[in-house]
Amino acid sequence: MADETTVAPGVARMREALKDVPHEPGAPKPDPILVADKVVRRFGGLTAVSVDHVEIPRGGITALIGPNGAGKTTFFNLLTGFDKPDEGDWTFNGKPLAGVPAHKVANQGMVRTFQLTKALSRLKVIDNMRLGGTGQRGEKFWQSLIPALWRGQEKEITERADDLLARFKLDAKREDFAGSLSGGQRKLLEMARALMVQPDMVMLDEPMAGVNPALTQSLLGHVKDLREDGMTVLFVEHDMDMVRDISDWVIVMAQGKVIAEGTPDTVMADPRVIDAYLGAHHDGTEHDPDVVAALEAEGETADE
């Protein structure tokens, strides 16, 4: 997709880093930020996730794809502390993270967004952003009663929030309630808010779900910018065109297991991947533009 004459530095860096990595499940990466081993999550008799070994390369955009019910979101929830595994360990930046509660995971630099956007409706956009600031003195009860203790820090956080709002073109909405934003704007706000935490790694759960096509390009651009800033991105997505467009590496899950890994082009030509998708809504390679438009329109109305 990205043509050879205008390759962004981040893309080139990741191509170089991943060029010797074998295209097979559980492949070791030169500098993984996240390493998961034997992660199992069962719901009653159903094994939703059973990931043997997987490594996420640092500084790149990794896509996690797979048919519905493959366990992608469950795996996401496990990694971010929103669900607890039955077995398994993983490390993030070299630190063990299994069984660590969600808020501590975020404080260690791994921040997630949600498939169903969680804008804090009755808070203003700017307050949504300020909430993302970490280590705020004013968030301690006794200190909160004395504004002099936190006013300076609040000003710093607000400046950072305003910069991010401008970057995500939400600055005009600064004083509006987040509940009055459109579905796509809420996705933008959620991503911007996650960046307020200053994470090393951003986990995006279906960032394009319910976003109208006009905003899709802008969202894609923001995700690519994260890579240029040196952040690691792991995202779950169904839209194959998007996956092909932005990801450096693709991990394919089916029935709770990692069945394939590789660059977008090799993965999509992989017979195991095509097999996994057969019987699903589409074959994972081509979209009929009319169907996509219809589905997106549906997603928009469902989102309202």
Binding site: T80, F82, P101, A102, H103, K104, A106, N107, V111, R112, T113, F114, K118, A119, L120, S121, R122, L123, D127, N128, R130, L131, G132, G133, T134, Q136, R137, G138, E139, K140, F141, Q143, S144, L145, P147, W150, E154, E190, R193, A194, M196, V197
Partner: peptide
């Protein structure tokens, strides 16, 4: 204060607040 902001955010959606590193 920022404490009240966290409190009101919990009223809106506690998972979102958790994902931003608040206990």
């Amino acid at each position: 204060s920022p404490w009240g902001r966290v409190i009101k955010a919990i009223r809106e959606d506690e998972d979102a607040v958790r994902s931003l590193g608040k206990n």
